[in-house]
Design a binder for these strands. Structure first.
Length: 352
DNA sequence: TAGGCCATCTGGTCCT
DNA sequence: AGGACCAGATGGCCTA
């Protein structure tokens, strides 16, 4: 559960607002703001406070304004402050500040969009990529780690990708809905990824094989379907049941304890069929279509069992720039001829 | 209604 | 000085 310092309607916010800290004319809205802006009708309390502080420290060439006689919320005199004195917020300064903030906000939005695009790319190389059932960010990262871990087991220990252990590794530490999704996908059919490549290279079917004939005996519920009340695929359960024996880690990270997912400190080994995967999945990011900000909600995606892409994004824009980048293609073709884990990993990570 | 997840704004910090 | 990165805060949307 996410921890939130304040409730959704913060008492503090109301207090600050009542003190007149909030701008009265709604000018906190960026001029370049998208229609997608949903919850930004007021600035955050902390931000507002910081904002005032910052304003007080800029433009030292302008006249300073004493603020010694600040009056507190209850009328009492606030203690004198040390440090640079705040300056009066002149109109010009306000405008400059706003312009700066607007630019910074735009950059930050762009940065976060880039991050989300990268996450989308990562989702696409996951075994259970689905346009309609999107993994949450955190689950994407967890699954990615598990995936790398599982593949490394395949390469290093010869573990079969059809084995229980492979699926267990993939699901380890994931939420049940995600575990179900992964299991469902693996059972349903070949993830376009490693499995095909394994088939090519090893002469064996991938997990589940084409047509969804799962060769492993784990009985996963309803293939391909989202989460809920299907059986429990909680990885730890499986592990206990099957006497799972994972790799030995030298330096277990304390951070991993909470999730129950083992850390992986060993050498990374790359996913096996990145190239095939990218070939198959070179679809435009759903996110990309939303970059144009359809009004409605900023919710471009729904997550796992309970979320679905809006139909309008099904087609999506063509030619995602990221997928046109040569860096996705070049190293991948080399992967199996001159197999160099570090190279592949770096190429894969570059894609991410 | 609570909880999960998200996008966005924001100020601070670090780096170039 | 300006940009990148980060984390805190907030409200919206959605589902159970």
């Amino acid at each position: 559960m996410m921890t939130k310092p304040f409730g959704k309607s913060s008492d503090v916010s109301e207090l600050v607002s009542s003190l007149g800290w909030l701008e009265e004319d709604g000018s906190s809205q960026d001029g370049d703001e998208s229609p997608d802006m949903r919850g930004q009708h007021s600035l955050t309390v902390g931000s507002r406070i910081h904002s005032c502080t910052e304003l007080g420290s800029e433009d030292m060439d302008e006249e300073e304004e004493e603020e010694d006689d600040e009056i507190g919320p209850n009328g009492e005199q606030a203690p004198k402050r040390r440090g640079p004195k705040k300056k009066k917020m002149t109109k010009a300064r306000q405008e400059r500040f706003r312009a700066r903030r607007v630019k910074a906000n735009a950059r930050e939005r762009s940065r976060m969009h880039g991050l989300n695009d990268a996450l989308d790319n990562l989702r696409r190389v996951m075994p259970c990529y689905s346009k309609t059932q999107k993994l949450s960010k955190i689950e994407t990262l967890r699954l990615a780690r598990n995936y790398i871990w599982a593949l490394s087991e395949v390469l290093e220990n010869g573990q079969s990708p059809e084995s229980h252990g492979f699926v267990e590794m993939l699901c380890k530490g994931l939420s049940q809905p995600t575990s179900n999704l992964v299991a469902g996908c693996l059972q349903l059919g070949p993830s376009p990824m490693i499995l095909n490549k394994l088939e090519d290279k090893c002469g064996g079917p991938g997990i589940g094989g084409v047509g969804g004939q799962a060769s492993h005996s784990l009985s996963y519920p309803s293939p391909g379907l989202p989460s809920p009340p299907y059986g429990s695929l909680e990885a730890s359960h499986l592990i206990h049941m099957k006497g799972f024996k994972g790799p030995v880690y030298d330096n277990p990270s304390p951070n991993e304890c909470s999730s129950g997912t083992p850390p992986y400190d060993g050498p990374l080994t790359p996913p096996l069929s990145i190239s095939g995967n990218f070939t198959l999945k070179q679809e435009p990011s759903p996110h990309e279509s939303e970059r144009n900000y359809t009004p409605h909600t900023g919710h471009h995606a729904h997550y796992l069992s309970s979320h679905h892409y809006p139909s309008s994004t099904a087609g999506g824009p063509q030619g995602h720039p990221l997928f046109q980048a040569s860096r996705y293609e070049l190293p991948l073709d080399v992967a199996f001829d001159s197999f160099t884990p570090s190279h592949l990993i770096s190429s894969q990570m570059g894609a991410i």
